[in-house]
Simulated scan of single mutants.
Amino acid sequence: MSTTIDTDPTAQTQRVALVTGGSGGIGRAVVERLAADGIAVGVHYAGNKAKAAETVAAVIGNGGRAIAVGGDVADEQAMSAAFDAVEAEFGGIDIVVNTAGIMILSPISTLNLDDLDRMHRTNVRGTFVVSQQAARRVRNGGAIINFSTSVTRTQFPTYGAYVASKAAVESITLILARELRGKDITVNAVAPGPTATALFLDGKDEATIATLSKAVPLERLGQPDDIAETVAFLAGPARWVNGQVIFTNGGLA
């Protein structure tokens, strides 16, 4: 008696994503957008397990597959465990989206250096740790998507330390794209403009928010769903976009 094994290379299995910072803001919008495309999702959280559980429940309620995984993105052991959990649940990882980040605004002359260290630990080391795990684990045909900011071009005052961390993210991303030559894995960064999330709105008065809205030719703040559309493009059909920073900002100069 013989057994026939289907080795058709076109046979499709469900793709799997891990989204860091996936419990709120842009991260949650990305989770829901990828799930809508039929992708199973690991929803990462750093401290708010309840919000991650809500996001998972929303995905499952809409017929998708998701689990929550926790951990500090800058802790290599915690992130290794998070990747392990997603692989154990869904069989592998095809897409890693690293939205986790913190933003502390201050003039360079008065920034508390402890805040600088805290921000760079999450934004730079965290991106490096997640990218390192992704480079080792993402399956051929996959995508790694990191997050920068459009302020690397606009140079707004008080953003100096934050932009420095995101410039590092861009460098990590572009070099990793070249290092993964031959593996059919794309590596890109998304650089949002002013987007209506708690991270962006915190500490800004209505006049500042209005000014930033009008700075965009479309004359509005971006929404998390706007950013999620770019991620879905890079995670799916954009197989010829690699080693790029995509400025998703409504035309902000």
Results as ranks from 00 to 15, higher is better:
Thr3Ile: 11
Thr4Arg: 08
Thr4Val: 08
Asp8Glu: 06
Asp8Gly: 13
Gln12His: 10
Leu18Ile: 08
Val19Pro: 14
Gly21Lys: 07
Gly21Met: 05
Ser23Leu: 07
Ser23Gly: 13
Ser23Cys: 10
Gly25Asp: 04
Ile26His: 09
Arg28Cys: 08
Val31Leu: 04
Ala40Gln: 04
Ala52Asn: 11
Val56Asp: 13
Arg65Asn: 15
Ala68Lys: 08
Asp72Gly: 02
Ala74Ile: 04
Glu76Gln: 15
Ser80Pro: 01
Ala81Cys: 01
Ala85Lys: 10
Ala88Asp: 12
Ala88Tyr: 00
Val96Ile: 09
Asn98Leu: 03
Asn98Phe: 01
Gly101Ala: 10
Met103Asn: 12
Leu105Glu: 09
Pro107Ala: 06
Ile108Leu: 15
Asn112Met: 05
Leu113Thr: 13
Met119Gln: 15
Arg125Gly: 02
Gly142Gln: 00
Ile145Lys: 13
Phe147Asn: 06
Thr149Leu: 01
Ser150Gly: 12
Gln155Asp: 10
Gly160Tyr: 00
Ser165Asp: 04
Glu170Gln: 14
Thr173Ser: 12
Leu174Asp: 15
Leu174Thr: 14
Ile185Ala: 12
Ala189Ile: 06
Val190Phe: 00
Ala191Val: 11
Pro194Gln: 07
Thr195Gly: 14
Leu199Trp: 01
Leu201Ile: 09
Leu201Lys: 11
Leu201Val: 10
Lys204Met: 12
Thr208Leu: 09
Thr208Tyr: 07
Thr208Arg: 10
Thr211Arg: 12
Ser213Met: 08
Pro217Lys: 10
Leu218Pro: 04
Leu221Val: 04
Gly222Gln: 12
Asp226Ile: 12
Ala228Ser: 09
Gly236Gln: 06
Pro237Trp: 09
Ala238Lys: 13
Trp240Asp: 14
Val241Cys: 13
Gly243Ile: 00
Gly243Lys: 03
Gln244Ala: 15
Phe247Cys: 12
Gly250Ile: 08
Ala253Val: 09
